[in-house]
Amino acid sequence: MPNPWFGRSEPAQGAAFRLFCLPYAGGSAAAYRDWHALAPHDIQICPLELPGRGSRILEPPLTRLPQLSGALAEALAPHLDRPFAVFGHSMGGLLAFELTRTLRRCRRPLPAHLFVSAVAGPDAPRTRPPVHRASDADVVDELRALGGTPRELLEDEELMRLMLPTIRADFSALETYRYRPEPPLPVPLTVLGGTDDPLVPVPGLEGWHRQTDVDAAVRLLPGGHFFLHSAAAGVMAVIAETFGIPAPVTRCL
């Protein structure tokens, strides 16, 4: 039976190295659709589809980060048979971190590297007011403030009505998250941030250093909170450099 966390295509068995990619709040595996063309041949891009979006739009979304990290750990277990890394942007970065801690608690293989992008350290206090129980208009206003949702989508009432339950669930996962201290991870960390990101300034990124007892580095890329899209080639260059792979040549998408 196909694994729904991989959408319509499971990881190829011949892959030498896998990069599991987790989306931001309200996002789907489609956030990484261009990465297959950008990645070096040595890295297999594996976008993960969370419930309630994309090919899983009919499934109820999960509203707590521990639920998501536990379900992901189970779903990925058969695919941890070769070197892998985990990348997550914004909410996906926090989920990538908790997934790695879940894998450690379950005594399963750990990633060779953890990439967290556009998210403050997990023990940083939340500064934005909660919106997961707010009115639809307030949730849409929050999406508009975050800046990652196209205006035409925000103005499409029918589509927003379809997506709001999933967006609320993601906000709920973020806003109810409570960091629980554990020993630092034995996994190297790269923290990516946008030079013009008003939501996660550089000091917030620095808090990730406490979460690993090996190497940690902060890398800044041009752009705001969603530099994941505007600087996608730069993000992939950082990933390739981390593993000592020649920087990929950008191909036509």
Score class of each variant (00 low, 15 high):
residue 126 R to H: 07
residue 85 A to E: 06
residue 111 P to W: 09
residue 147 G to T: 09
residue 143 L to T: 10
residue 50 L to I: 12
residue 83 P to G: 12
residue 106 C to L: 15
residue 130 P to E: 01
residue 140 V to N: 06
residue 134 A to Q: 08
residue 124 A to H: 08
residue 103 L to S: 09
residue 133 R to K: 05
residue 71 A to I: 03
residue 107 R to S: 13
residue 75 A to N: 12
residue 133 R to Q: 14
residue 130 P to V: 05
residue 50 L to W: 09
residue 99 L to E: 01
residue 102 T to Q: 15
residue 153 L to N: 07
residue 127 T to W: 07
residue 91 M to P: 07
residue 67 Q to F: 07
residue 122 P to I: 04
residue 131 V to C: 13
residue 80 L to R: 09
residue 80 L to G: 03
residue 127 T to Q: 13
residue 85 A to W: 09
residue 78 P to I: 01
residue 72 L to T: 14
residue 130 P to Q: 07
residue 55 S to V: 15
residue 100 T to K: 02
residue 86 V to Y: 10
residue 126 R to W: 00
residue 73 A to Q: 08
residue 64 R to E: 15
residue 134 A to P: 13
residue 66 P to E: 08
residue 137 A to R: 15
residue 76 L to G: 06
residue 87 F to E: 05
residue 97 F to K: 03
residue 83 P to R: 11
residue 139 V to R: 07
residue 125 P to L: 02
residue 136 D to W: 05
residue 133 R to V: 02
residue 55 S to E: 13
residue 89 H to D: 05
residue 53 R to W: 04
residue 140 V to L: 14
residue 96 A to V: 01
residue 74 E to Q: 15
residue 152 E to G: 06
residue 88 G to F: 11
residue 119 V to N: 05
residue 130 P to K: 09
residue 96 A to W: 06
residue 63 T to N: 14
residue 67 Q to I: 05
residue 154 L to E: 12
residue 71 A to K: 05
residue 52 G to T: 11
residue 127 T to D: 05
residue 86 V to P: 11
residue 103 L to R: 10
residue 116 V to Y: 15
residue 55 S to A: 14
residue 94 L to N: 01
residue 116 V to E: 14
residue 109 P to W: 13
residue 76 L to T: 07
residue 99 L to I: 04
residue 131 V to W: 06
residue 137 A to H: 09
residue 85 A to N: 13
residue 151 R to G: 02
residue 68 L to Q: 15
residue 104 R to I: 13
residue 86 V to W: 03
residue 106 C to S: 13
residue 101 R to Y: 00
residue 157 E to H: 10
residue 130 P to C: 10
residue 113 H to C: 11
residue 60 P to Y: 01
residue 101 R to I: 00
residue 116 V to A: 14
residue 117 S to F: 12
residue 130 P to G: 04
residue 149 T to L: 06
residue 116 V to H: 15
residue 158 E to L: 09
residue 71 A to E: 11
residue 52 G to P: 04
residue 61 P to D: 05
residue 153 L to Q: 09
residue 154 L to T: 07
residue 118 A to L: 10
residue 90 S to M: 11
residue 126 R to F: 02
residue 142 E to D: 12
residue 68 L to G: 12
residue 159 L to F: 04
residue 110 L to Q: 09
residue 83 P to H: 05
residue 105 R to G: 14
residue 69 S to Q: 02
residue 156 D to H: 03
residue 69 S to R: 09
residue 85 A to V: 14
residue 91 M to D: 04
residue 127 T to Y: 01
residue 129 P to G: 06
residue 138 D to N: 00
residue 51 P to L: 02
residue 98 E to F: 03
residue 117 S to H: 12
residue 119 V to D: 06
residue 155 E to A: 11
residue 144 R to K: 11
residue 121 G to L: 01
residue 121 G to T: 00
residue 112 A to N: 03
residue 139 V to F: 02
residue 147 G to E: 12
residue 119 V to T: 04
residue 138 D to H: 00
residue 137 A to W: 02
residue 51 P to W: 06
residue 64 R to N: 14
residue 109 P to H: 06
residue 78 P to A: 04
residue 115 F to T: 12
residue 100 T to I: 04
residue 108 R to I: 10
residue 73 A to S: 15
residue 102 T to Y: 02
residue 70 G to V: 01
residue 103 L to A: 10
residue 135 S to A: 02
